[in-house]
């Protein structure tokens, strides 16, 4: 394999302490090296797009950050403290929230329950029986949705009856409510119509304005240029580009992704 000719540019957000830092992370599956020696940093208030062709190692890289896989080599630091996560739940408890492409919502339940799923607030009934505190869930859900400037007319309707954009908004609200230090979004606009894609872009910008860094995995160049400050490009498990979105165009990016210009 040829030596990596990594394209980099200066990141103006790179001041102070990164929220998350990966150093020389490698992950192998049998004989296949899915991610090879990748280092990166994410700073507060940054939106970083993770671009790359299918099989480039984007998902594997993300899954190491979200606790699904353990890296074979290398280290992950959250605010300067090394973390080793045994499960996605542990990553969540550390403040790393991942929004998967399928959103992982229970469509038969309403938005408020979904926001609190697995971490339901309880209150005592008659002093003994512990019951789910639905009123608390409703008021807290309203607060977090307001904070994100999301309007969902009836929070008691099951997710099944909501539009794709509203579902995405609920998934984001769930991540944000639990004081995410880092939000990872996997193909957030893949299944959405154009107006809803725009709504998701606005949501990402809202998160950014609240200093929550976001990593977006995307195939969609429009997505990337609409929201990303910085673009990390993966190819065959290696990081081949780490550039400011303002300094490149779509052709540059595609070139990096497919390896054009390589001898």
């Amino acid at each position: 394999m040829t030596a990596t000719t990594e394209l980099t540019s200066v990141n103006p957000a790179a001041q102070g302490q990164p929220i998350i830092r990966l150093t020389n992370v490698t992950k192998r599956f049998g004989g296949l090296t899915a991610v090879s020696d990748v280092s990166m940093e994410i700073y507060p208030g940054e939106v970083v797009a993770l671009a790359g062709d299918n099989g480039a190692g984007k998902s594997t890289l993300i899954k190491m950050i979200s606790g699904v896989y353990k890296p074979d080599e290398g280290h992950i630091y959250l605010a300067d403290r090394e973390i080793t996560m045994a499960s996605p739940m542990e990553a969540r408890s550390l403040g790393i929230e991942t929004i998967y492409q399928d959103l992982a919502l229970c469509e038969n339940l309403d938005a408020t329950v979904n926001i609190f799923l697995g971490r339901e607030p309880m209150k005592r009934m008659f002093g003994v029986f512990k019951q789910v505190d639905r009123r608390h869930m409703l008021t807290e859900s309203k607060t977090v949705l307001d904070r994100l400037d999301i309007t969902i007319p009836n929070l008691r309707r099951p997710i099944r009856q909501m539009s794709g954009g509203q579902r995405q908004a609920v998934a984001i609200a769930r991540a944000v409510y639990w004081n995410a230090k880092l939000v990872i979004m996997d193909e957030p606009t893949a299944a959405l119509g154009v107006p809803e894609q725009r709504k998701v872009h606005e949501l990402v910008k809202t998160l950014k304005s609240q200093r929550v860094p976001v990593i977006i995995i995307s195939h969609n160049l429009q997505d990337i240029f609409a929201v990303a400050d910085r673009i990390i490009v993966m190819r065959r498990g290696q990081k081949v580009g780490d550039v400011m979105a303002s300094e490149v165009d779509g052709d540059d990016l595609v070139g990096l992704m497919v390896g054009a210009g390589e001898a």
């Binding site: 399928d102 992982a104 919502l105 229970c106 038969n108 339940l109 339901e120 029986f129």
Partner: peptide
């Protein structure tokens, strides 16, 4: 009203999502 009841609905609605929600 109970957490067990709510989890029963969640598991029946989307087992994978319930798992990921912890």
């Amino acid at each position: 009203r109970s957490r067990f009841g709510l989890h029963t609905y969640a598991v029946g609605g989307n087992k994978e999502a319930a798992l990921r929600a912890g």
